[in-house]
Design a protein around this nucleic acid. Structure first.
Lengths: 198, 198
DNA sequence: ACCTGAACACCGTTCAAGT
DNA sequence: ACCTGAACACCGTTCAAGT
């Protein structure tokens, strides 16, 4: 009934709360860089010099913490898709963007699995970011398909799955890092239309 | 010095030990089918009605347990490669075998990651099985390359990585099971030589 | 409004003590 | 020779008690 009794703008958080949030995020960035997406939340709270409950207050689950860590990167990649759409031929733009996505998905150990698991779980804070990625990639994909450079039966979800799978390969077996670009080309070549006389 | 003081043939294990081993294996098959390769070892020992130390005595680590569970399947797949080599044209034989491998790698939740991690870890009991798989696949691959059906720059390790990656996709996102065959074809098409006029 | 840390129910791994 | 389970050092998650 009465919206007027309180200002619509939410109160700014207490400065100590804000500082704690920042510290957790900083500690998380460190820990996740070292130990991957499965880094111990207890350890993160310890590094941040903060009670374990405080971590949970600011980030109700692991995905929320990862989302905060990754949101910037996803936003950048989405912009990048639109930038590439303008400047490069459709097929090259798509390949370049997918490549950059695979590098992003490989930013942290375990991240490809985390992102892929997001498909099952609409409640995950990462779900929206991954949807954004699929849409950004989908626009480049459609353009490449219209120009005839990519098979018409490739869906955005296929692209998302294959890009994550490529990241996962080097995530699980760092030995294969040297074959990463080669594997990338093999997979992308599979998306081209079969030759006329094939 | 003296080999003659003891018989060369190792003593048969105590019958109770043998029975415990069997029980653990049976319980493990159940638990892993339900919970995947990361199933709780404690839970497995409990189901087997056996002390936790007994599980460790028979299987010093998780991979040893999984190897016992999977050895049969790997052996069968290796045979299958040689059988296919005789009866089908090289390119078809390869595709069929890789497809069957992806089904095997998807037998348990988490298995694709377990298999892939094996590449880093020569001490893992699964290492040998995976090497066998790469060699079996490698023979089919070479034949398909000689017949001109597959690019010459595809290595057995590429095949292994891509097949596991395909299994991983549906492992992580069961939603994509319906696209499994489609993704399989996309990836396999990437292994074909570029068309002459490409 | 926010923070803390004990409490709970789990892990994997080791190893002294038993038979 | 083999088995058991307590002990240790960890988890994630919740929540009463504090400020």
């Amino acid at each position: 009934m009465s919206i007027e009794s309180r200002p619509v703008t939410p109160r700014a958080p207490r400065t100590d709360a804000q500082r704690n949030r920042d510290r957790v995020l900083e500690a998380a960035a460190q820990a996740v860089a070292e130990q991957g997406t499965l880094a111990s939340l207890r350890d993160i709270a310890r590094r941040a010099g903060v009670g374990l409950g405080t971590l949970y207050r600011h980030f109700p689950n692991r995905d929320a913490l990862l989302e905060a860590l990754l949101h910037q990167r996803f936003a950048h990649l989405a912009q990048r898709a639109d930038a590439l759409a303008g400047t490069a031929p459709p097929e090259r733009a798509l390949a370049e963007w997918v490549y950059e996505f695979t590098l992003g998905a490989g930013a942290y150990q375990g991240l490809p699995s985390t992102l892929m698991a997001t498909l099952n779980d609409p409640e995950s804070p990462l779900h929206a970011d991954c949807l954004t990625m699929r849409q950004a990639g989908g626009r480049l994909l459609e353009a490449a398909q219209e120009s005839g450079g990519i098979r018409s039966d490739v869906a955005p979800i296929d692209l998302f799955a294959l890009a994550n799978a490529l990241s996962w390969i080097t995530d699980q077996a760092p030995t294969l890092t040297e074959r990463r670009d080669h594997l990338f080309r093999l997979v992308m070549d599979g998306l081209k239309p079969p030759s006329d006389q094939g």
